[in-house]
């Protein structure tokens, strides 16, 4: 087995699972799906720095470091995605409490979709 294959397939599986859940009809699975997609996107971005083992970008006597830039970008992405998840959860909650069901689709559009 190659590490590259493992990581790439993990990204693919996370995306597929996330996408499937995003297409569900209730808010909670959609939120779960968005969270899975977030993992997939973050790992994808992180992997764009290529996979390096035991070479963290902490300056020391060694000469080999992994690419630090994707890490910095993903770090803020993780924190921001928490904020965004919280917002959609709040919206979902408000919709449920205000509308008595937790469907994601407009009732009129339900038949056509």
């Amino acid at each position: 087995m190659e590490l590259e294959l493992l990581v790439a397939s993990a990204i693919g599986i996370l995306t597929a699972a996330g996408m499937y859940l995003v297409l569900r009809l209730r808010t909670f699975p959609v939120i779960m799906g968005v969270s899975l997609l977030t993992y997939a996107v973050n790992v994808f971005l992180f992997a764009s720095g290529r996979l390096t083992i035991a070479a963290p970008p902490i300056l020391s006597d060694t000469v080999q470091y992994t690419d630090p830039l994707p890490q910095a970008l993903v770090l803020t992405a993780i924190v921001i995605s928490f904020g965004m998840t919280a917002v959609i959860v709040m919206i979902a909650l408000g919709a449920y409490l205000g509308g008595s069901n937790d469907k994601v689709n407009d009732p009129d559009a339900e038949e056509q979709s």
Binding site: L5, A8, G12, I13, L14, T15, A40, F44
Partner: peptide, 10 residues
């Protein structure tokens, strides 16, 4: 979608 991202990442 999963296959696409997998292929691209790989």
């Amino acid at each position: 979608s999963g296959l696409a991202t997998f292929g691209m990442a790989y």
